[in-house]
C-alpha cells in the first residue's frame, strides 16, 4: 500500500512541473524585473528600486490608463448584465429545439478568434461603416459620427465579445430553478413582475454575480478589442504593457504595470468572492 501513497504525487508531477516552469517561475521573474531600472543608454540594470512602481502609481498618465481600463470594464460588465440577464431568462423559457439553437448562436462566436469578432465591429463602426450609413441614411445623423477610437465603440465591441459568458453563467443558474416554483408564485396571486423580482431574480443572482466577475476580469485585461477599436488614442493597461515591452523596450516599467494589474485583479476577485459569500451566508441562514 505504501507505493500507492506516492502515486498521486507522481501522477501530478508533470502538470505541476509545467505550471511551475512556465507560469510560476516566469511570474517571479517578472516580479523581480519590475524592481530593476532601465534607461535608453544602459538598458536593463539589475538594481533594486521602486522607481517603476512610483511611476506607475504616481504618474497621471498611468492614472488615466488604469482609470480608463477599470471604467471600461465596469461599463462592459453593466451593459452585459443589462442585456445578458434578460436574454438568459428568455432562453430559459424557450421550448427545447429553440433553446439549443439560440444557445448555439450565442455561444458559437466563442469559437471564433477575438480578432475576427472585433474586425466585424471595426467594419460596422468605421466612418464609412454600416452603422454610420444606416444612421445618416435614416436622417438620424447629419454626418457620419466617429465610433472607432471612442469609449462607446470599445464598450460595444467588448460587450459583444464577453456577453456570451454572462448569458451562459445566468442560464446555468436558472436551469437549476424548479419551474414549479414560478407557477407556485403565480398561483399565490403574485403578478408576473413580482414573480420575476421576488422569485426568479434572487435565484439567478449567483449566476449574475459569477458572470459579472468573469466579464469584469476579462474586460479589464482585454487586449485585442481595445487595441483595434480604441487604438493608440485610448490606451488600456494591456496595451500600455505591450507598448513598454515591444515599442519602448522599457521592460522593467512594463513589468511593474502588469504586476499592478495582476495584484489589482486578484484583490478584486478575492474581495468580491468574500463579499458575495458573506451576503449569501446571510441569505441562506
Amino acid at each position: 500500500m505504501t507505493e500507492r501513497r506516492h502515486l498521486p504525487y507522481g501522477l501530478s508531477a508533470p502538470a505541476t512541473l509545467v505550471l511551475t516552469a512556465f507560469m510560476a517561475a516566469p511570474l517571479v521573474m517578472v516580479l523581480l524585473l519590475s524592481f530593476h531600472t532601465f534607461t535608453m543608454a544602459t538598458g536593463i540594470r539589475p538594481e533594486v528600486s521602486l522607481a517603476n512602481y512610483v511611476e506607475v502609481l504616481g504618474d497621471g498618465y498611468f492614472h488615466t490608463i488604469f482609470g480608463r481600463t477599470f471604467l471600461l470594464a465596469a461599463a462592459v460588465t453593466g451593459v452585459a448584465a443589462l442585456i445578458g440577464v434578460p436574454e438568459a431568462y428568455i432562453i430559459h423559457r424557450m421550448r427545447p429545439p429553440w433553446r439549443s439553437i439560440f444557445l448555439l448562436v450565442i455561444l458559437g462566436p466563442l469559437l471564433v478568434s477575438v480578432v475576427v469578432r472585433t474586425l466585424g465591429w471595426a467594419v460596422l463602426l468605421g466612418r464609412n461603416g454600416i452603422v454610420n450609413a444606416g444612421l445618416t441614411g435614416l436622417g438620424i445623423l447629419e454626418r457620419p459620427a466617429e465610433f472607432m477610437f471612442t469609449m462607446t465603440g470599445m464598450t460595444v465591441a467588448l460587450v459583444h465579445v464577453l456577453v456570451p459568458f454572462m448569458v451562459l453563467s445566468v442560464w446555468t443558474s436558472l436551469r437549476r430553478l424548479d419551474p414549479a416554483v414560478e407557477a407556485a408564485g403565480l398561483s399565490l396571486g403574485a403578478s408576473q413582475a413580482t414573480v420575476l423580482r421576488r422569485i426568479v431574480l434572487p435565484q439567478a443572482m449567483p449566476g449574475i454575480l459569477a458572470g459579472s466577475l468573469i466579464v469584469f476580469t476579462l474586460a479589464a485585461s482585454a487586449f485585442a478589442t481595445p487595441a483595434i477599436v480604441g487604438g493608440r488614442r485610448l490606451k488600456v493597461v494591456a496595451m500600455a504593457a505591450y507598448d513598454e515591452f515591444l515599442n519602448s523596450q522599457n521592460w522593467p516599467l512594463g513589468a511593474a504595470i502588469v504586476v499592478v494589474l495582476l495584484v489589482a485583479m486578484v484583490t478584486i476577485v478575492v474581495g468580491y468572492n468574500r463579499i458575495v459569500e458573506r451576503r449569501y451566508r446571510q441569505v441562506f441562514q
Binding site: 505550471l19 507560469m23 516566469p26 515591452f245 502588469v258
Partner: peptide, 21 residues
C-alpha cells in the same frame, strides 16, 4: 487550486512573463 490558477492570471500578464522567461 494550483492547476486551475492560470485562469486567474490575465493573458497579458502570462505573455509578459513568458517573454521575460
Amino acid at each position: 487550486a494550483y492547476f486551475l490558477s492560470p485562469l486567474m492570471v490575465p493573458h497579458v500578464v502570462l505573455g509578459v512573463a513568458l517573454l521575460r522567461f
